[in-house]
Nucleic acid binder design. Sequence first.
DNA 1: TGAACATATGAACATATACTCATATATAGA
DNA 2: TCTATATATGAGTATATGTTCATATGTTCA
Lengths: 120, 120
Amino acid sequence: MSEKINLDRCDCTVIHEGVVSMVKEKMPDEEKLYDLAELFKVFGDSTRIRILWALSESDMCVCDIAALLNMSQSAISHQLRILKQTRLVKNRKDGKVVYYSLDDAHVKQIFEMGLIHICE
Amino acid sequence: MSEKINLDRCDCTVIHEGVVSMVKEKMPDEEKLYDLAELFKVFGDSTRIRILWALSESDMCVCDIAALLNMSQSAISHQLRILKQTRLVKNRKDGKVVYYSLDDAHVKQIFEMGLIHICE
DNA sequence: TGAACATATGAACATATACTCATATATAGA
DNA sequence: TCTATATATGAGTATATGTTCATATGTTCA
């Protein structure tokens, strides 16, 4: 279990060849893991987390969210754009007002999983 | 349902006072949501995601991980530090070699929740 | 049609962050 | 003790990103 092969970029030797090749087999596509990271990156901002949490309580328009979080309308709008691109929220227009709501039933479950870790 | 009160920072008016105050009541502590965002931020990097996924398959030493991901030992070590600070991984020392393993049984479940969204 | 308002958006800026590079620390073996 | 090896870490750098500011778009109502 100690073959010691030098590799390209990593400036060290493989100590456990068997383990590495086994794990390499089991790893999902690079792309899928990249997408997964991109999704969590969206959750990784407190403004967006608060927006998502708020929307999990009730649909709201942009002004309401801005008031709730005491932030500028522009800042909220920019973040809503990101959340929409990630298909985490959707919106419906009613005259001048745009109402946002969650577009994924699993958002709350993802929150729960995170909280379980934090609260341990 | 249209009280229109001007607020501090948000450059707009509250359209639905009732909804905003109701949601404000239900929102968790600012600090808790901040911690939650910080946790997801750790998941929001493809290098760390790949490390966590790899460790969910098998414990590994730093060199093995560097070889697996074809990255420098230093880069991996820096990321492992972050993962350890967040209590997502732990390590044990065996001579010169440091073995890392998952420190949270829920990591895989958090992945699953993310994948459900991506695969929809 | 024109004023008021809700929202969206591009550019600029300040900050955060992931990696590299150089080097420190620690352990094993000769 | 000296060398080799495995890992950790501080500084520097390039890039990513969140917010602000100014302004555009689109809708309602007088």
